[in-house]
Design a protein around this nucleic acid. Structure first.
Lengths: 345, 345
DNA sequence: CTGTTAGCGCGTTCAC
DNA sequence: GTGAACGCGCTAACAG
C-alpha cells in the first residue's frame, strides 16, 4: 500500500455522486446525510458517512458557495503583518473565524494602493461574506462601494471617511486611544514632567488621533498644551536625527506614536548618550511583547490586539447571520508603567 | 445618487449573462472578451469591457474554479503569525502570490493538532493548488496524503518525516541553520569563549537541528563538544529560573534557540545583575528586527524570512504550472555580530 | 470571429 | 424517508 501506483498524479477527488453510486442512492440523500439533515434515517446516514470516510470525501467549497451564494469566507486587510500589533489582530481574527467555521483570506500590504485595490477585487471575486479593514485607509468610496452587499468592519481609531455616503453596512471598531493617552499623560505629569515632545508616526489618521489626544490630555492636566514635534520616516537614520535633536533640545518626556518607534528611539538615544529615564522619559503605544523586555522596559499603552481581531470577526458573524449592521465598538486599553518613564523602577 | 435606494440590501452582483443580455451576445463571447481571448474582435472586446465596467462586474471565483478545477489559491500554515519570523514568511509568501495573481489562505495555529486538522480540511475544500507548511510538524502521513494531488512545500530545517512514503509532490525549503550556527560558534570561539551553554526552544525538530549543529560546530572548532543545556517553556518565569542557573554556573556563552528567547534571557539576566556581554555572551537566531535594537544589541543568525516565503510561493507556482515536483532548496543565512557577544562593540 | 451545448459539484425545490 | 430535476456562474468543447 505504500508503493502502489506512484504515477496516479491526477486522481480526481471523490464527489457526492461517487458515494451515491457506491451506495445506489441519490446524490440528494448523500448531501442531506452528510450535513446531518434530520429527515434522513439514522441507518443510511451512518452508511453514507462510512463510505464518505472510506473514499476520503471532502466537500467542494466552490460548488457549495456557488449554490449557497455565500462562501463562509471573511477577508482581512492589514497594512503589514510584520507589525506585532497587526499580527495579533490577525491571530485573534483568525482564531475566532476558525471557531465559527469561517475561512479567512488575509491580504497584506493594504497601504499600497495598487495592492489594496487588487485585494479588494479578489475578495469580491471570492464572494467573501464580510471584510475587516485593519488600519487601512480607504477614502475611495468607489472601491468600497463595490463590496456591497458585503459587511465591513473598520479597525482603526478614526473609522472610514465619515462623509462616505454608502449603504454598505459597516461598523467601526476602535481601541480607546484617547483614554490611553490621557492615562499616560497623567502618569508623566505625576512624575513631574513638563516639557513634552511627540514623535509622529506615519501620516495616518491614527497618528493624528494620538497627537491630538496628547494635546487634549495636557490641557486636561492643566499643562500648557504645547508640544515639540518630531517626524520620522521609516528609515533607521531618521531616529538618529531625532535623537540628536532631542539631545539638544532636552524635552523631559518623549511620547512616541507606537512601540516600534519608541524602541528605535531608545536605541538611538542610547547611541547618543541620552539616558532613559534619567535624562528623559520615553513612552510607546501598542503594548507589543518586546516593549515589556526592552532595556529600559518601555512604558506604553497596551492595546487589546487579539481582542480587536476577535471582536471584528464576531461583529461580522453577527452581521452576516442576523442580517444586521456591524456595531460601533470601543475596546479599553490599559497603561503599562515601566522603567522608561519612572525613575524608581 | 448618494441617497437613492438605501434599502436595496441584497442587490445581487451582475453576472456574465447580465452583460451578455445587455449586448445581445452570448455569454461565451463575453467570457472570452473579458479574459482577453485573441479570437475576439477588438470592437466587441471594448464594448464588453465597457458594459462590464458600467455594471461593476466582477467574476465569481467559485464558479470559475468549479469548472477550471483549479482555484488559483494557495494555503499557508504557520504555527503563530505573532512570531516575527513567521510574519516575515507570511509577508513574503503573500507578496509573491499577489504578484502571480494567486490568493492565499493563511492558517494560523498549526501547532494545535485540532486546528491543523481543520485547516487542512478547509484547504482541501477550497481546492487549493498548493500549500506551504511553515515550521509545522506533520508526521501524520494520513493527513497529508489527503492533500494529494496538491503540491506541498515544507519550510523547516528538517523537512517532513523523511520516511513518509507519499507520492504527494513535496519540496523542502530550508535556511542553512547549520552554517549559521557554525559561523556563530567560530565567532564566539574567536572571542575566547570556552564554556558554552544552549537554551532549548520548544520541542521541535528545528531545536534539535540547532542544538546538534552547536555540538558539531564546537567539535569542528577543536573545542570539546560539551554544552550545558537549559530548557524553558513559554512562561516568562522560566527565563528567570534559567537566568539564576546561569548566574550560578557561569557559562561564558549562552546560545539561545531563537531571538525571542535570547531577548527574554537578556531581560532576565539584567534583572539578576548578570552583565552582557561582560559576564557572558548571549546570542539568538532568526534576525528579527528587534534584535538589532535591543540593549545590548543582539548577535544573531539572520534568516531570510521574506525570501523563504517568496521562494516557497514561487516553488509552488512552478510546480503547479509546469506540473513538476517543488524542488528542495536551501537558503543562505548571515551572521550579524553585535554587542551581546563582543566586548568592544 | 461568434453562438450552442454541456457540464463542473452541490443544495434545493418538488414530488413520491 | 428518498429521488428527480433544476440551476448557481462560468468555461470548454464543437460548430458554424
Amino acid at each position: 500500500m505504500t508503493e502502489a501506483n506512484g504515477a496516479t498524479k491526477l486522481k480526481a477527488r471523490p464527489t457526492l455522486s461517487d458515494i451515491a453510486r457506491a451506495l445506489n442512492i441519490s446524490e440528494a440523500t448523500v448531501s442531506r446525510a452528510l450535513r446531518g439533515n434530520p429527515e434522513i434515517s439514522e441507518q443510511t446516514r451512518s452508511l453514507v458517512r462510512g463510505v464518505a470516510r472510506d473514499l476520503g470525501y471532502v466537500p467542494n467549497a466552490a460548488a457549495r458557495s456557488l449554490v449557497r451564494k455565500s462562501s463562509r469566507t471573511l477577508g482581512l486587510l492589514v497594512p503589514d503583518v510584520t507589525d506585532p500589533l497587526h499580527a495579533l489582530v490577525v491571530a485573534g481574527f483568525s482564531r475566532a473565524s476558525d471557531l465559527k467555521g469561517y475561512t479567512v483570506i488575509v491580504m497584506d500590504g493594504s497601504r499600497e494602493p495598487a495592492r489594496l485595490e487588487r485585494s479588494l477585487r479578489t475578495l469580491v471575486e471570492h464572494q467573501v461574506d464580510g471584510v475587516a479593514f485593519c488600519s487601512t485607509p480607504v477614502n475611495l468610496k468607489e472601491t468600497i462601494e463595490q463590496l456591497r452587499p458585503t459587511h465591513c468592519v473598520f479597525i482603526t481609531p478614526e473609522g472610514p471617511d465619515a462623509n462616505m455616503a454608502s449603504d454598505t453596512p459597516l461598523g467601526r471598531l476602535r481601541a480607546d486611544d484617547e483614554h490611553g493617552i490621557r492615562m499616560m499623560i497623567e502618569h508623566l505629569a505625576g512624575q513631574g514632567k513638563q516639557r513634552f515632545s511627540y514623535v509622529n508616526g506615519p501620516g495616518l489618521a491614527s497618528n493624528m488621533t494620538r497627537r491630538n489626544a496628547v494635546l487634549a490630555a495636557l490641557e486636561a492636566c492643566g499643562i500648557e498644551p504645547r508640544i515639540r514635534e518630531y517626524s520620522a520616516g521609516a528609515e533607521a537614520t531618521e531616529f538618529g536625527r531625532i535623537a540628536e535633536l532631542v539631545a539638544r533640545e532636552r524635552p523631559d518626556a518623549l511620547i512616541c506614536y507606537d512601540d516600534k518607534m519608541a524602541l528605535a528611539m531608545l536605541d538611538a538615544l542610547r547611541t547618543r548618550g541620552v539616558e532613559v529615564p534619567g535624562d528623559l522619559a520615553v513612552t510607546g503605544f501598542d503594548g507589543i511583547s518586546f516593549a515589556a523586555i526592552s532595556n529600559p522596559r518601555l512604558t506604553t499603552v497596551v492595546q487589546p490586539g487579539e481582542a480587536l481581531g476577535e471582536t471584528a470577526a464576531n461583529s461580522l458573524f453577527d452581521a452576516i447571520e442576523r442580517g444586521i449592521r456591524p456595531p460601533d465598538l470601543t475596546l479599553e486599553v490599559t497603561l503599562a508603567i515601566r522603567e522608561s518613564s519612572s525613575l524608581r523602577a
